[in-house]
Write a protein that binds this DNA or RNA. Structure first.
Ligand SMILES: [Zn+2]
Ligand SMILES: [Zn+2]
Ligand SMILES: [Zn+2]
Ligand SMILES: [Zn+2]
Lengths: 137, 137
DNA sequence: ATCGCGAGCGTTATACTATAACAAAACAAG
DNA sequence: CTTGTTTTGTTATAGTATAACGCTCGCGAT
């Protein structure tokens, strides 16, 4: 029998690998590739891409990290309270990734989802351009 | 002096490689990877990934094809009249990709863009889930 | 205790995606 | 024709992701 989880589901604490990877993501304002992360967490004992990918998969499932499709990279979640959709503004010059919680952006998607005969599992919304700092100067 | 284009910019006809790649995309209702495409256009004389990627780059620049970030794949454009944003509904079961021209989906993005101090270059909006055919049965 | 099973982790190897770098050929101007 | 410019072909390599397998650990059954 698989390990019995007593009540509903305890979140189960993060393993050493997950903690190391999440730490690396939190320290960065830009998205990091799995191999970038690997370079940074070698000290913590991770030695192969698989370990990083496994940790990332768990973190993403829990909503503690997000995958940025247009960069083949990952970021730590900055809006832990959100369930479901996430959106990102990505600066093409400095690489900064800002997680958008803007309801004005997300509500229309929910509305569309209600009207369309399409069972949504996940939405990717990534806006690329220049952040104020990079555009202004 | 670089080749002078007489008036504004003539679209310039597609080369053999672009035509072959675009044909492969149009024949498919799912997104195709560059290597998938390569397998299909070997007959037409393309022999290396670079050639496919170059053709894809030109097609995307012209708006005749789109990259689907969440699949590392490409589709032919089905709404040639659209300028700017494109959005996609992707079935995770059958792989069908539908290009969404729905103004209800796109207008909020334009609105957000106007209000935010962020200079948008490109928007990726990909909705993953089950298409009616795959969800219904 | 200890045996057996299943889940997860570490490790190696490999598949898939994308681009760099250079050679050859096509094209336009003079 | 000659030369500079641009495109196309070719080879090699970089970057991203997963498959496969064996080991260990924790837990329940004997
Ligand atoms: Zn988040
Ligand atoms: Zn910036
Ligand atoms: Zn289109
Ligand atoms: Zn389907």
């Amino acid at each position: 029998m698989p390990t019995l989880t007593p009540t509903g589901d305890e979140p189960a604490p993060l393993g050493r690998n997950e903690q190391a990877v999440l730490g690396a993501l939190r320290r960065s304002r830009a998205a990091r590739s799995a191999y970038d992360i690997l370079d940074e967490v070698r000290d913590a004992g991770l030695k192969a891409p698989t370990q990083v990918y496994r940790a990332l998969e768990k973190l993403v499932k829990r909503g503690l990290a997000h995958r940025i499709e247009s960069l083949n990279g990952f970021v730590a979640c900055r809006h832990p309270q959100d369930q479901g959709f996430a959106a990102f503004a990505i600066c093409t010059r400095c690489g900064a990734v800002r997680e958008l919680a803007d309801e004005a952006l997300i509500a229309p998607l929910r509305h569309w989802a209600g009207a369309e005969p399409f069972a949504i599992e996940h939405v990717t919304l990534e806006v690329r351009g220049l952040c104020p700092a990079c555009a202004g100067g």
